[in-house]
């Protein structure tokens, strides 16, 4: 899938949880990705992070590290 789209969607999710305490927000974002994204989408996002994670919000990036 287009990595720009994955980054956009992951950032949206992270933003939705950003008012929570940081650790909680990271946990909730990671849980959302696990609960609703297919394994292939998650793997592609992880690969994007491994390649530098351009465009990804820090909160989303931390959540991907928890997957």
């Amino acid at each position: 899938m287009d990595s720009n789209k994955l980054v956009h969607m992951a950032n949206q999710i992270a933003l939705a949880f950003r008012l929570q305490p940081r650790d909680e927000a990271v946990k909730l974002t990671a849980e959302h990705l696990k609960a609703f994204w297919s394994p292939q989408m998650r793997q592609e996002l992880q690969a994007h992070v491994a390649a530098g994670g351009a465009g990804l919000e820090p909160l989303a990036k931390d959540a991907v590290a928890k997957l």
Binding site: M1, F36, W37, Q40
Partner: peptide, 12 residues
């Protein structure tokens, strides 16, 4: 594991 949603299917 969760599967693909409609927009994900089209993207894939």
């Amino acid at each position: 594991e969760p599967g693909l949603r409609i927009p994900n299917m089209l993207d894939e």
